[in-house]
Amino acid sequence: MLKEQPDVCTTQEAAAILGISVTSVQKLVEGGEIAAWKTPGGHRRIPRASLLAYKATSGTPRTDLATPARAALLVVEDEEMQRAVFAAQFKKWELPIDATLCASGYEALIEIGVRPPDILFLDIAMKGIDGYEVMETVLNRRNLREVNIAIISGMAREDLDARGGVPPGVAFFPKPVRYDELRGFVTACCMRKQRAALA
């Protein structure tokens, strides 16, 4: 039985050379960034020269493609039961998000100052600093322009319009919440985060 040429690597050996996971190597091969072929048995074989060329042109190895960048999600909701429901839904979704739940607009502004979110869910009718005030603060800050904002409220649309309406670029989800729609919104925000991380 002939031995494989030493200048050809398996995906496991390629992963060790590049310092990334086997899954990431497979993604690079499928994306055409690393040359490879399959044996009759279906195993990938990668020329060592192709790996070294990729490593030289990529500089520092990229963040593992199999590990998505996580999006920071901030929920501002004063009803404890609703916060618990949100937390349960987020766990079911298994999306790359790190969720923080605040019980008031005041707590939310402190949290935003410490860690600006990628996604912001806002209830509107709250005591003290309400959702509109939090939203206006975010919309008026240059460093927060990329935040994806969604109003989640039981207020009638005409009542929202009396407060100034829903600003352009802000999503609106009425209560009771349709969690499938909300999940779609969050998924889209996460994909945007992934593209930005790989840019």
Rank of each mutant, 00 (worst) to 15 (best):
L52I: 03
Y132D: 04
E111K: 15
R141G: 08
V85G: 10
I97D: 05
A69M: 09
E146K: 14
A125T: 14
R145G: 07
E107A: 09
K127G: 15
S50N: 05
L109Y: 03
F121T: 08
K127M: 15
N143P: 04
G32I: 00
A53L: 07
R62Y: 00
I151P: 00
E111W: 07
P61S: 02
G31T: 07
A53C: 05
E30R: 08
R62A: 03
K55T: 02
A72S: 12
T57H: 08
S58Y: 02
A35N: 13
Y132W: 10
L95I: 01
L65F: 06
W37M: 08
T57V: 10
G32K: 00
D98K: 10
Q89K: 13
V75F: 06
A103D: 13
S24T: 12
T39A: 04
C102Q: 09
E136V: 10
D123N: 11
V76Q: 00
A99C: 14
E146G: 09
A87P: 11
P96S: 07
A56I: 08
R70T: 15
C102E: 05
A56C: 07
A150D: 07
T57G: 09
E30Q: 13
K27M: 11
V147M: 07
G41F: 12
K92F: 03
A99H: 13
A108L: 02
T100M: 14
A125Q: 15
I152G: 04
T63S: 04
V76A: 01
V75Q: 06
L120T: 04
I112S: 01
R70D: 12
A66R: 14
T137Y: 13
M135L: 15
Q26Y: 14
Q26D: 12
T67Y: 11
P96F: 07
P40A: 10
G128H: 04
P68S: 13
D123L: 03
S58D: 04
A108V: 00
L51D: 00
E80F: 11
V85F: 10
Y106Q: 14
